[in-house]
Structures are given as C-alpha cells and as structure tokens.
Design a protein around this nucleic acid. Structure first.
Ligand SMILES: [Mn+2]
Ligand SMILES: [Mn+2]
Ligand SMILES: [Mn+2]
Ligand SMILES: [Mn+2]
Lengths: 221, 221
DNA sequence: ATTTATTTTTAGATTTGTCTAAAAATAAAT
DNA sequence: ATTTATTTTTAGACAAATCTAAAAATAAAT
C-alpha cells in the first residue's frame, strides 16, 4: 500500500525493470551481474520483493515486475533522470559524470521534492542521455528509437540516447564529440567486423565498432 | 584517511557536533535522546567512531569529537545547509518544511556535487534558518548572535536563526510571520513567566513565551 | 561511609543485506 | 535415456545497526 522501499530494494526494482525492457525477460544470473552481486543474494531479494507484491516470482520458473513493481520502478527512474537533467542543465556537469551521483539522489523519496524539482527544471521530457523522463503520474513519452547499427546506410538520423552507459563508453563518445542531438548518417557497413563508417554533418567521418553502434540509439530524420 | 562514513555514522557525528556547540559537553543519554535512539546503541557507535579516530572516547569518562571528527561534522553541515538553501531559494519550499529532505540529501558525499551546487547558489553565507554555511575548506563565518530572551528592552535586533528547529516551532513562527530577517524589539519582559512582549516594525505587538524567546537568535542592530 | 539513584556499558537477540559452498532443479549433450 | 553442464535455490555465516534487559560504574543522598 504505502510506497517505502529500502535503497537495496529500489536498486533491484530498477535493474529488473531495465533488464525487462532490454531483453524481454530476466534471469537470476543476469540480474546478479547487472547489480554486481551474487546469484544467492538475488534469490533472497526476489523472495522479499515477491512478499511485498512487487514481483511475480515462481522459484526456478522465472520472475517479472508486478503492476505495482512496475509503477515503483518508473518513479525511481523519474527521480534518477530528473536529477541527471539538473546536474547537467543547472550544475554544468558533463553527461558522462552524472550517473553515480544520480544513482544516490534517486533514493530520496520525497514526492514534493521531485515534483518541485520537475517544475524548477521546466518539465524536461528527456534526460541528458536522451532517455524519456516519466511525468508525475508515471507516464512515459516513449520514442521509437533504434540502434545506430540498424540504421540503413545513407539515412540521416539524430542521436537520442545511449544504452549500456558505462563511464568508459560515455567518455569515449565525449572524446569523439558524439552526444545526444548529434546528427549523422552511415556511409558504409563493414562486413568483416560489423563496424560502421559514420559521417557527421561537418563531413568528418570516423569508424565505430559494432558494440558501440549497437549502444547508440537514434531517431531517423 | 579516506572520508567515507555510513549514513548512521554521519548522523551521529553531526549530532555530537551540535550538542557540543550548544552545551559544551555531551553525554550518552542526551545523544541517544537527540538521535531518537537508545543509550546502548550510542555506546556501540561511540566505540566505532573511536576506532575510526573521529572521537576521543573513554568509557564512562566522556567523549568529544577529534579534530578529524570535527572536520567531518562541518562538511556534513555544509551539505545540509546548502541543500536547505537550494530547497528554499530554487524550489520555493517553506523554511519549515525543508529539514527532513535536507537530512537525507546531506548524505550524498560527492565533493564535486556540493562545490558545484555552492557555485550555482552563488556561495550563500547563511541557510534559511540563518545558520552559517561552512565554505569548501570548512571555514565557518560565525556570527555573534544571542537569544531573543537576552536582548535588552527597547533595543532593535534582526532575527538570524532559530535553535531547536522542531517542525512545530517553525510552523508556529511562520503563522506569526516571524522569520529570518524580521526586525523587532522587546517592549517588556514579564517577570512572572519570563515571557516577552515584542514589537514589530509595523507596530504590531505580540507576546512570546520564554521557551520561544530562548530559541530565537537575534543580532542587535 | 554506606545506601540509593542515575548513567553508562555489556550481553545477547534481531533485522537487513550480503557472501561462500553445497544441494537441487533445469537444460544440453551424448 | 543417461550423463554432463548450467542455472537457481538453500544452508549457514557474517557485518552493520539496532533493541531489551541486566550488570557495572559513577554520582547523589543520607
Ligand atoms: Mn541507486
Ligand atoms: Mn540517464
Ligand atoms: Mn541525516
Ligand atoms: Mn538549517
């Protein structure tokens, strides 16, 4: 009934949500890996979340967030992304140095704080990584994006977000001047390693590995 | 060496600091009461802080923060008060509804976050309760304030802070339009209950109990 | 100087979240 | 259809932070 979860619980809820989004279904080991913990710990927490009706969990069979769990996840993500926007827009952090701090700020559960922050920020729709920010009711403005790797050759597109947001990847992109909003197109797909040759609007071209091209999400223009 | 404390440790450090400031010395029961916990729990934590060299503690004899513990306390207080300023100045919270949220925000330990926040806020010197905000090096601009109860009759003064910041007290002051920056003077001190008759600049007069007059801190003009 | 009261500390439990190692269930391979 | 490998769960231990109840130290009172 009341929405009051521990920081550990919230981190699990959020991870399950993200893994569900990405792969459709989650398994214990994947979740353990994502949370940098052990499978046994995951099982313990699954039972706890199940008991709190946040999860539909059948031992050995599998698990996914309940309607209630999903709602909780969305609110945590709202807080995370609003703080990320704040850090970049107001405190002038780089978009590749905000994740850890937002990972902590997201656990401050005051509804009033978040709604006032949202207002102060001007009700932003996307976070600095291009991910949509759920509104105060939990509604998400999903945008139909696709991996850069799947973009047809010679079709212009704008970068909207980056999956797999490791600091290393974000720093790499930063160094290549690749950011949310960058407009580019693919000039060639190299078959031997699936890397792609991309060209920016300023005519400059660089080569991007398959892994990176899969992480970069774009909207065709 | 490295400054990484748990939330519980930080709350103890801060409470010890405040009780030291107020009364010169602290005892186990007072600390337990201030932290809304039990004396046994306090003893446990004292041993832990002692082991971390944050406290000079001799069982049964007494305890006080070490130089290192003091420094840690000041940094927690810096974070607390900067967030309070942010909540009032940017998010337009009332000064009597910010404490709980700041109590959580203060535990986000990123130095970069706090220094950037400080810059964003314009390096404020005082929090919304009139308490001084330590700077990035831990220096505090102490101001010589005294309790309203000790202010001489007919001497104008400005309210600079409020001790004993319970929500009830802050709400009461709010309802009487008493806030940081309010200018007033004492017209009479009533001997039978030590209450004081105060007059605002708009000529309005009200009576304030001894307890409240002791909590309100003023600077004579 | 004893006795009595207060304060503080210990002893032992409990809760939360984690871990390693072993057992059980499921999936893959022969 | 067994055997082998992988995944998942249990069993048991542990650290952090808390609690209650009892013991020990200190302070106050007679
Ligand atoms: Mn987190
Ligand atoms: Mn993000
Ligand atoms: Mn706190
Ligand atoms: Mn304050």
């Amino acid at each position: 009934m009341r929405a009051n979860f521990s920081i550990a619980e919230e981190n699990y809820i959020k991870s399950i949500y993200h893994l569900q989004q990405a792969t459709g279904e989650v398994n214990t080991n994947a979740l353990a890996n994502h949370l940098n913990t052990k499978a046994a710990s995951v099982t313990d927490m699954l039972k706890k979340l199940q008991a709190k009706n946040l999860l539909n969990y059948l031992p050995y069979k599998g698990f996914k967030l309940s309607r209630e769990g999903n709602k909780a996840a969305v609110m945590i993500i709202r807080r995370h992304r609003l703080w990320e926007f704040f850090l970049v827009d107001k405190l002038h952090f780089n978009w590749d140095e905000i994740h850890e701090v937002a990972e902590e700020l997201e656990h401050i559960r005051s509804k009033k704080l978040i709604d006032k922050l949202d207002e102060f920020l001007g009700y932003p729709k996307f976070d600095p990584h291009g991910d949509p920010i759920p509104d105060s009711n939990g509604k998400i403005d999903e945008l139909k994006q696709l991996p850069l790797a799947n973009l047809p050759v010679n079709k212009q597109a704008i970068i909207t977000s980056v999956l797999n947001q490791s600091n290393e990847l974000l720093a790499f992109l930063s160094s290549r001047n690749i950011a949310i909003g960058t407009v580019l197109e693919i000039k060639d797909k190299l078959p031997f390693d699936n890397s792609v040759e991309i060209k920016f609007k300023n005519k400059q071209s660089i080569n991007i590995s398959e892994q990176v091209a899969k992480a970069i999400q774009v909207n065709p223009l």
